[in-house]
Design a protein around this nucleic acid. Structure first.
Lengths: 200, 200
DNA sequence: CCCCGACGTGAACCGTGGTTAACATCCCGG
DNA sequence: CCGGGATGTTAACCACGGTTCACGTCGGGG
């Protein structure tokens, strides 16, 4: 399936007044996060934006196409963002780590729904789409691994990869402890814990 | 709809030769973890233990009853285990934390499938069963919160709860970084990182 | 020996939900 | 004013999968 090209509408994606297409994607993300993609009906998604179920098919080829586009966008944003902040951090591995941590924490706090969907519903994708998402995710992980390796040259690549996943788990715990803490407090807490965990 | 009483079969649960009922639960746990509860059919579960789909109904009242029993058992094991290890650790909060960390790490390494199912498929339970599971989970979390509060009396309860969830996320990342590291190495890595994250 | 309960099987039933079809509405460019 | 594309709606279609049914087998106790 893959994401349909759609050259023009994809560009002004998050404009001031989001297009109906974007409204749908956003509503779907929220619903998918709450109940799981397979438990959400197209009628539910439609109702969330004020239309009936079949209206969705004016904007997407099908339900799985929505999920695919959603996951591909997330993976792409994460991958590109990580590349950007690492470059901006200069040559110091410690500064690079701080940049990655801050980036991931902000992303998780800004998009708890996307975080939840990404690691729960990847299995609902077609093998083709899943492969593409995994490729992007792998590139994202490898950026963390590179930084962690620079910080601790004695550690094996496998160990650094496991550390990276552990840090993701820590930071992505946000959706589970929802709302109890103010955002700045939560941000500070996660940054501190992740940094401590990473630097031992 | 709650776990059926079943006084005799429940007792010799994990005997040397697991009963057909236990085989089914174990196979279901593995499949649920791989694909998500809603994506695995009763036929799949049956096939995994060498019978046809409807045979399941000789042992369970339905598919959701399996999931409910699975999640209730996990929550119960975690809650009871935490209570046990904290008591065994004596009065020192630091020793209590170490005990909780070791306990959770061992559980996650021993039962990656259960860990995955627990935090992904809770939403698939009936409201009644979900409430019961959440009650047990809350009691488990509160044990961590108590220890974390003892370690850092200035922190608010909300902050300690967020810290506990972050630590769960870190430790439960095991299923994501599957198998690349030997078990002892993975155990040491997770214990070190969790302890660092918890004690800043 | 025979009956009964435990355990399975294949076939059928049926609700749910994704998808398509056929038909309105609205708005804009010619 | 008219035609057509974008966007929706309702009703129908249809596959999938959980569940039930009617029937077999088998082993152990009266």
């Amino acid at each position: 399936m893959g994401v349909t090209a759609e050259p023009d509408s994809a560009l002004h994606a998050d404009a001031a007044r989001p297009s109906r297409r974007e409204q749908i994607l956003q509503a779907a993300a929220r619903l998918f996060a709450e109940r799981g993609a397979r438990s959400v009906g197209v009628d539910d998604i439609g109702a969330a934006v004020g239309v009936t179920g079949p209206a969705i098919y004016r904007h997407f080829t099908g339900k799985d196409a929505m999920l695919a586009e959603m996951l591909l966008r997330i993976s792409e944003r994460l991958q590109a963002g990580a590349e950007r902040v690492v470059l901006a951090a200069g040559d110091d591995p410690r500064a690079q780590l701080d940049a990655l941590v801050a980036f991931q924490v902000d992303f998780a706090l800004d998009n708890p729904a996307l975080i939840t969907v990404q690691d729960r519903d990847l299995g609902a994708l077609s093998e083709d789409d899943a492969r593409q998402v995994r490729r992007l995710q792998r590139r994202y992980v490898e950026q963390w691994v590179a930084v962690l390796t620079a910080l601790d040259p004695d550690a094996t690549t496998a160990a650094c990869r496991a550390r990276a996943h552990a840090l993701f788990g820590l930071i992505n715990s946000t959706p589970h402890s929802a709302g109890r803490l103010s955002r700045p407090a939560m941000r500070a807490l996660l940054v501190t814990m992740a940094t401590s965990a990473a630097t031992g």
